[in-house]
Computed example of a mutant assay.
Amino acid sequence: MIGRARPAPELPAWPQYSDEERGGLIRALEQGQWWRMGGSEVDAFEREFAAYHGAGYALAVTNGTHALELALQVLGVGPGSEVIVPAFTFISSSQAAQRLGAVAVPVDIDPGTYCIGVTAAAAAVTPRTRAIMPVHMAGQVCDMDALAKLSADAGVPLIQDAAHAHGAQWQGKKLGELGSVAAFSFQNGKLMTAGEGGAVTFPDAELYELGFLRHSCGRPRTDRRYLHQTSGSNFRLNEFSAAVLRAQLGRLAGQIDTREERWPVLAGALADIPGVVPQGRDDRCDRNPHYMAMFRLPGFSEERRNAFVDALVDRGLPAFAAFRAIYRSNGFWETGAPDETVDEIAKRCPNTEAISADGVWLHHRTLLGTEEQMHQVAAIVAETLAEL
């Protein structure tokens, strides 16, 4: 075990809460109706979340995976369809499509931003492609200009996987202003959280209304005769979670401001360490909420990277190994996998292969620390590398 040459800084805890969350929970409790069809917290949160993201409409749901699944279903994804997804992402991006009976088609990523490669996505479009799912990795918004052109040229809609990107902006536009559906997560580690939860933002009323039906078992709001108009499931968020999320949304902007100030400090200090390459940034993403502080250790094997992450954790840093390539998990192959082998997909995804082996990330609470703590974190990274 590597010695504790330098103690880890006492970084801010996560989740964060205050009397705002407590008050919201009491408010939800005392209204006497604890589900969305009788209460007011979910409705209020949806309005506030949509406004914050510049979207026409928002629909709160049970979790981020369900948000993706619902968004895909609303756009007509189902058996016989294909959905293009980045090979480097959390596996919910692909499983949401696969659970609808569609085939998930992994494509490679940009080696600097870790976001979906537009050229790779374009090459994967077929007559069966029903959606393209860019993932805003760690808060870095994908190249939405090029993706919008690809979407228009191919006649295939985009679904933004924005699980990491609450409050992000692309050339001054919020994610809800980019003209496509976006799905968000409120899982415990996310930028705002109620333990679990999710949301889908929609650009127009028609898609929103279809989403509402399908997230409520196909049942209209005013139905009293069990006349279910579509298929669907129960993805309704409860009133208590919505009350907590309203408070979380209220402090999101300030937290993003802090992380935007701290990331250049940490990234600069990490870049000064030989062999460490921080995640790049496309400057057109002019507001990055920094869900993760990501960096690479080019040339590391997966085993050596894992040992490095374990050593950082042992020293008290909230460190994690980067996502495994989705096609290298057994769950990817259970249903809805493309007619390719692992080796065939890996051959066309060299950037994914590399970062899956040598990528590291620190939880975003790291970036809520002080400027001095950013230098302390980088020093621990340097010492750990030197001793590994």
Score class of each variant (00 low, 15 high):
S301E: 03
T370K: 12
H290T: 04
Y226K: 09
R287C: 09
H164S: 02
R246P: 00
K174C: 01
Y208V: 06
A148E: 07
A168W: 05
S92W: 04
D223W: 10
Q187H: 14
G139M: 04
A162F: 08
A357M: 04
S233F: 13
W35G: 00
L29S: 13
P274C: 11
D272M: 11
N330L: 10
E41D: 12
F88Q: 02
P278E: 06
V61S: 07
V244Y: 01
R236D: 04
R236T: 12
I345G: 00
H53I: 09
A8C: 13
H290M: 14
G56V: 02
C285D: 09
P127C: 12
L29M: 14
S231E: 15
L68W: 02
V313S: 02
H166P: 08
S40H: 14
D310M: 13
S81E: 01
G268D: 12
R236S: 06
G189M: 14
E209L: 02
A182T: 02
A87M: 04
L213W: 13
Q248T: 12
A152I: 00
A386V: 09
G211Q: 11
Q140Y: 09
L68A: 00
E82Q: 15
G299Y: 13
L385Q: 08
E10T: 13
P220N: 15
A124G: 09
T230P: 05
R47G: 14
F212R: 09
E41N: 03
G101Y: 12
L150W: 02
W34Q: 05
Q16H: 10
D282T: 08
G195T: 13
G299W: 14
D286G: 10
D283C: 05
A58D: 04
P127A: 13
S356R: 03
R221T: 08
P15C: 11
F49A: 08
E302I: 03
S233K: 06
Q373C: 05
Q160K: 00
D257S: 09
A321I: 01
S231L: 12
F300N: 02
Q255M: 15
M1W: 05
L388K: 00
D108P: 14
A102I: 09
G76H: 10
A378E: 12
D161Y: 03
Q279E: 11
D43V: 06
M144D: 05
A58C: 08
E177M: 10
T193W: 00
L362N: 01
F184W: 03
T113P: 04
A96F: 06
G54Y: 06
S233V: 10
R251Y: 11
R130H: 14
M192E: 12
N63I: 02
I116G: 03
G64M: 05
H136Q: 13
